[in-house]
């Protein structure tokens, strides 16, 4: 499957406890929300819905409940209760967050699947799109070093995606320029 992490990664990750991953994910989420305070307003009435974000090549699922004033996040082996589920390989999900991928294009190509409340998924996708997140912001780095860090990160992520045969990059962080002149 394109974009999937190698099976040994999933097997190894399955042996690890989830709590450290959950602590780290919450920290990154807190940074992102602090940098983008309008996120909840854009999500509007869909605040309070439960989203299962499922990296299908990993033995865990992120369960998010965005709320005005903070987003509750937990990491579980299997999500049993959710309003909407978004599933794709991990690198594809990360590529949606940083604007590398267009969610509709991933859906058309069947690299991403959704189930449950379609309207809530759309609201979340649009709110993430408008958040315009990058690695430095999520890691909470100071403004002065964000540019070089983001450029380096884009190169690394691009190589990883190619290594995993993930969908081709496009967009502001991608490589497509679309036109050949002659």
């Amino acid at each position: 499957m394109r974009g999937h992490l190698p099976p040994f990664f999933a097997n190894a990750a399955g042996l690890l406890p989830l709590q450290p991953l959950e602590v780290m994910a919450r920290h990154l989420m807190t940074n992102a929300m602090a940098a983008r305070p309008s996120f909840a307003a854009r999500l509007g009435e869909y605040c309070g819905r439960t989203f299962a974000v499922d990296p299908v090549d990993c033995p865990f699922v992120f369960v998010l409940m965005p709320q005005d004033g903070g987003t509750h996040l937990s990491v579980v082996r299997e999500a049993e209760h959710f309003d909407a589920r978004i599933a794709a390989p991990l690198v594809v999900l990360l590529g949606m967050v940083d604007g590398t991928y267009d969610g509709d294009a991933l859906f058309f190509s069947r690299d991403l699947s959704i189930e449950g409340d379609t309207e809530a998924v759309l609201a979340l996708r649009n709110a993430i799109e408008n958040a315009d997140l990058d690695l430095s912001t999520v890691l909470g780095f100071p403004q002065g070093i964000q540019g070089p860090v983001n450029r380096a990160a884009r190169q690394v992520f691009m190589r990883v995606r190619r290594l995993l045969d993930a969908p081709e990059d496009s967009g502001p962080n991608g490589v497509a320029n679309g036109v050949g002149l002659s």
Partner: peptide, 17 residues
């Protein structure tokens, strides 16, 4: 209703054209 990746790719391509 499309994302920034779509907008960026398509707009750049058509502007060059």
């Amino acid at each position: 209703q499309r994302g920034r990746a779509y907008i960026s790719s398509v707009v750049r391509a058509f502007r060059k054209a």
